[in-house]
Amino acid sequence: MEKINVGGQAVIEGVMMRAPRSVAIAVRRPNGEIVVKKELVVPLSERYPIVKLPIIRGAVALIQSLVIGIKALNFSANEAMTEEEKQGEKEKEELSSWAMAGTMAVAFGFGIGLFFVLPLYATKWLTQLSLISDNNIAFNLVDGIIRVVVFLIYIWSISRMSDIKRVFQYHGAEHKSIFAYEAGEELTVDNVRRYSRLHPRCGTSFLLIVMLVSIAVFSLIPKLWPFYLKAGSRVVLLPLIAGISYEFLKWSAKHDNHPLVRMIITPGLALQRLTTGEPDDSQLEVAIRSLDEALEVNAGYADDRLVV
């Protein structure tokens, strides 16, 4: 089979894998059974050619990833429940479109507040105390440093949680499976286990790149703007920042053997040591099943049904 670009996401007790035309979610139920949900997906670029343009495709990819990711988490949360936890529920239901939109809005708002508004407010406070210069370059540099520090503290904090540790192990399983596929290996547990859990195209690296790119982009905002305009501009400019970061990530993934590129992507790979864990064989099995199913659907050999 011709090699294609694949990506993924760890979910609760499972892995979501995405190929250009398919999505598959594999989750291990409490009884040890693996359940898979898979579907054929028509790329937006086929319906809207503008989506293929650089920068724009990155912003669209971010939105798509959020939507698909939340759906995958919802599915995995339902399937990972024990029978006792399911008792009392009339039936399991997928999130409605309105509930999905609300969940995304809350998550998006939390992220904006924590990683963009809070650092901006903290930098303004430091300026008022004359602890830093109100020079535009200095202001945005300190703002960016605080943003990165908040991000690192957040990642470190959630990595200490036991439930998140298991998700991060599935994250490692996802990376190992993709590495084995890209190397042309047969997708078996023994083969996949040998590969690294750190991948240059990881979403963790993407988020770190976003933090760094935002420093440069926000430096273009006039320092005389009032606080509310500066805060609002951070929301408005996010698609541009995501688009630039996406292009850099794709470029670095294609040239990851170059010494300069390896030096640039090293911080992102180092951060993945927090967001990935070494998976056990049962977790590798789930990641392999998800990738196999996504590739099969992408090739047109399966339909969009729930496989139990």
Rank of each mutant, 00 (worst) to 15 (best):
L126Y: 03
Y246Q: 08
K38Y: 04
S97C: 06
D256K: 01
P267W: 10
G32W: 05
P267G: 06
L260N: 00
L131P: 04
E2A: 11
R47G: 15
F151S: 08
V15G: 09
V27S: 03
A24N: 10
E79T: 13
R29D: 05
E83P: 03
R160G: 00
R147I: 06
P30K: 13
V235S: 02
I70W: 01
I241M: 14
L249P: 00
A299K: 08
Y228S: 13
P259W: 08
L284S: 11
I56H: 05
V67C: 03
V117K: 06
I265G: 10
A231C: 02
V42S: 13
L66Q: 02
I146R: 01
A122C: 12
W156A: 13
K176G: 08
G203C: 09
G88N: 05
G172T: 03
K124T: 15
L40C: 13
P222C: 08
G8S: 02
T127V: 12
K38V: 13
Q87C: 02
G111H: 09
F108L: 15
I215D: 05
G232R: 05
I63N: 03
I25E: 03
N191K: 14
R289L: 15
A183Y: 04
K124R: 12
K254V: 00
L295V: 07
L141R: 07
M161P: 00
V11H: 11
G268S: 03
E182A: 03
N78Y: 06
H255E: 15
V286S: 14
P226F: 11
A242M: 02
P200I: 08
P43E: 07
V23Q: 13
S65F: 00
A72T: 03
T188C: 07
D304E: 12
N136R: 10
G69E: 01
L126R: 13
P259N: 06
S157E: 01
G172D: 07
H171E: 01
Y301C: 00
I112L: 15
S162I: 01
L284I: 15
N78M: 14
P200M: 07
A294M: 05
V189R: 03
I209T: 15
R28M: 14
Y170G: 11
Q9D: 05
M16S: 14
M104E: 11
G109N: 06
T188W: 09
M104G: 14
V150L: 13
I132H: 08
S290E: 05
I221E: 07
I4T: 11
S130M: 04
G111N: 09
V106R: 04
F115E: 04
Q64N: 14
K230W: 04
R234S: 04
E285D: 14
S162Y: 12
L284Q: 11
M16D: 04
I215T: 11
G69D: 01
A107Y: 14
